[in-house]
Computed example of a mutant assay.
Amino acid sequence: MSHTDFAHSHAPGHDELVPSRYALKVGDIDVMVISDGVMPIPATTLATNAAQDDLATWLDDMFLPPEVCNWPLNVAVVRNGDRTILVDSGLGTQFPGFPRAGQLAMRLDAAGIDPGSVTDVVLTHLHMDHIGGLLVEGLRGRLRQDLQVHLAAAEAEFWNAPDFSHTVMPAPVPDVLRKTASRFLDVYRSQLRPFETEYEVAPGVVMQRTGGHTPGHSIIRLESGGDQLTFAGDAVFQPGFDKPDWHNGFDHDPEETARVRIRLLTELAANGGQLLATHLPFPSACHVAVAGNAFRFVPAVWEY
């Protein structure tokens, strides 16, 4: 499917009142960002090391609610040559407490993307909102038998005995994360293709382990025809531009995550590459600019 097909693909009966897919090009590589929906998160999760007044001021400045924020969930589909690569899979529908998430299967259909055409899955990490979609029958049962699932070896190893001692999550979450990751590894073990530090999934599509958010957290870099785009997973949350040293409650190593984030944003500000991230407002496509001692989110201009 060409970029034009991506941008105009449509399946009757799937119209929604909000946009849920956005197509862009990185040189010869086609990318489609797909919204898996949103999930409510306590606002305090966004800045566990910030003073309460500082967080309240930031939320007010951003016109965000003071108690609970809707956390966007972005997934990407990347096509290059004969490879169709799914980047993460959203939450899935097995968590009734999050009824507005888990939209991936429906929205793939709406975009005219057959799950059976996916040759590879790349996973930034094994938190449930990145792998849950691959565990529900609406998607899992439609995937090809020879599907390859790429993730950092350190990530698979971590979830054998995960350490939550530096996280600040709502009480039920760690156990659900542990159980979901364990189930995922059991279901997909024969299809896993772990890598150590860096792996080229397809020409111009490279996974790199950053660590920080989880020990095996990885980003995906696309490069073609002089264009660059980075899917940052959970290395960058919404406060990460103007408050890059704030810790997220889901960070397993908050200080290392901040270092990873600052290095990445500094690099993108210097080279002008585009950024996508899981939890930035849909479609999350943006550039990064330096703003004093921090950074500035510069939304991409949508192409129609």
Rank of each mutant, 00 (worst) to 15 (best):
V136D: 01
V78G: 00
T48L: 07
N74F: 03
V168D: 06
C286L: 07
R261S: 05
D15P: 08
A258I: 03
V176I: 15
Q274E: 12
A232P: 06
P19S: 14
E198H: 06
I29A: 03
M62Q: 15
K179L: 11
P283C: 06
N160I: 15
A294M: 03
D88E: 12
Q145I: 11
L143A: 00
T266V: 09
A101T: 06
L86K: 03
V26S: 04
D146S: 11
M39F: 10
F250M: 12
G273C: 10
V149A: 01
L264I: 15
A111P: 07
H3T: 09
L86I: 10
M128K: 02
A47V: 06
I219F: 06
L185G: 06
R144N: 07
D53H: 06
P96W: 04
V122K: 02
N160K: 15
A161M: 13
G37F: 01
I113Q: 00
L177Q: 15
P42Y: 12
D54N: 09
P115R: 01
D60T: 13
P162W: 07
I262E: 11
N70C: 11
H3P: 05
H10N: 10
F295T: 05
D61A: 14
D61Y: 08
G132V: 00
E16T: 11
L64G: 02
P12V: 09
H166F: 09
A171V: 14
C69Q: 10
D175T: 12
R21W: 13
F237Y: 15
L91G: 00
Q103C: 08
A291W: 08
S2H: 12
S35E: 03
P194M: 01
G233C: 02
F95V: 14
F241N: 02
L192Q: 14
F297K: 04
A202T: 14
T44M: 09
F282T: 03
V298R: 11
Y199L: 11
P283M: 05
L126S: 08
S224V: 04
E157S: 15
N248A: 13
K243A: 08
V201N: 03
L276I: 14
G90L: 05
T44I: 08
E155Y: 08
I85Y: 06
H150S: 00
F241E: 03
H127Y: 15
L24I: 10
L264P: 13
T45P: 05
D109Q: 14
V206T: 15
W302T: 13
L177H: 13
F241Y: 15
P239V: 04
R193S: 02
P281H: 03
P254C: 05
A11C: 10
R263S: 12
N271T: 14
S284I: 02
T93H: 00
T45G: 06
G240L: 01
M207R: 01
